[in-house]
């Protein structure tokens, strides 16, 4: 075999290895990105579930004998704020996630306040089985949100780590993969915020 043939074969071999490696990095990133998308749809499901429960809460509170409109202003405004926040599921950039989280966290606070005020003002209403069921559902929904946000963060972490680690980062940049955003814990609340009340 001629020397030049061996050189050509070696070059072709090395190129083939690089291409194969690139394909494997790409496939790995696609899989991880797919996991992020799946986790995101679960996050959205959990939040949507909460959105769907709010009209029930509104109706229940409106049924109270001495109902005042001001009790529900905060929660209806926060709900409207959430509806204005759109997230492109194919991007999930840091800015989008941050804006989405801000609107949703706002609603979390508004809901907690509304329930607190409701329990204070309408004790006869909150003692009913219907309200207790609604409360259990809202509580479960908050738990789902927390769980799905945690799982989403894990999926993003796996994806971002692969994306940024050398040498895969070279290929990732060339193929147009971009970093995705996390949910963060609010600054004022490093500890879990417990909203406790008796009725």
């Amino acid at each position: 075999m001629k020397k030049s043939t061996i050189t050509i074969l070696a070059v072709v071999g090395v190129l083939a290895i690089i291409v194969l490696w690139g394909i494997s990095v790409n496939n790995k990133l696609v899989t991880l990105e797919e996991n992020v998308s799946k986790a995101w749809s679960q996050v959205e499901n959990a939040y949507k579930r909460r959105m769907d429960l709010i009209p029930q809460l509104v109706n229940t509170v409106q049924g109270a004998a001495n109902y005042e409109k001001s009790v529900l202003t905060e929660v209806t405004n926060a709900r409207a704020g959430v509806q204005q926040t759109q997230v492109d599921p194919s991007q999930l950039s840091e800015e989008q996630i941050a804006a989405y989280q801000k609107a949703q966290d706002n609603l979390t606070k508004a809901l907690a306040n509304t329930i607190k005020v409701t329990v204070e003002r309408y004790p006869e209403l909150t003692a009913t089985q219907g309200f207790r069921d609604l409360q259990a559902q809202l509580e479960g929904t908050e738990n789902r949100i927390t769980t799905e946000r945690g799982k989403f963060n894990e999926a993003v972490q796996a994806y971002n780590t692969k994306l940024r680690r050398f040498p895969a980062s070279i290929i990732a940049g060339m193929l147009g993969f971009e970093k995705k955003g996390y949910f963060t814990a609010p600054e004022e609340a490093a500890e879990p915020v417990d909203v406790k009340f008796d009725f």
């Binding site: 809202l138 908050e142 738990n143 927390t146 963060t184 814990a185 915020v193 406790k196 009340f197």
Partner: peptide
């Protein structure tokens, strides 16, 4: 007593 815990997403 009822406890409503709003726990922020934990990265810890």
């Amino acid at each position: 007593m009822v406890l409503l815990a709003f726990v922020p997403a934990a990265l810890s």
